[in-house]
Amino acid sequence: MRGESGPEVAFEDRMATTEFRVAPGAHITIDGDTCRGCTTRECITACPANLFAPMADGGVLFSYEQCFECGTCYLVCNEKGAITWNYPVGGAGVAYRRS
């Protein structure tokens, strides 16, 4: 059964328990040049949805589809303006059922 007990549940299975209504466009944008020069890249580990991934060229790759819309990424980003973050279009995004 998906999401069976135990802390070792795979991250994709963990994320699959939550409903996301995916918007046609991203509500996060990042400035690739700034991210390539970033030495801390704290967004990668701090994002609870694990949406940020390091790229081989030193940049940061992100996805928006399974975003909790919490705001952690833009707050921990120490390069002003590297992450621009807004709310998804109305009706889209995370739709909690049991929170």
Binding site: E4, S5, P48, R98, S99
Partner: peptide, 14 residues
């Protein structure tokens, strides 16, 4: 307390 329970939703908020 959690043994055998099934994860049914995961989320985060500031």
């Amino acid at each position: 307390l959690l043994a055998g329970s099934e994860l049914v939703e995961y989320g985060a908020h500031l």
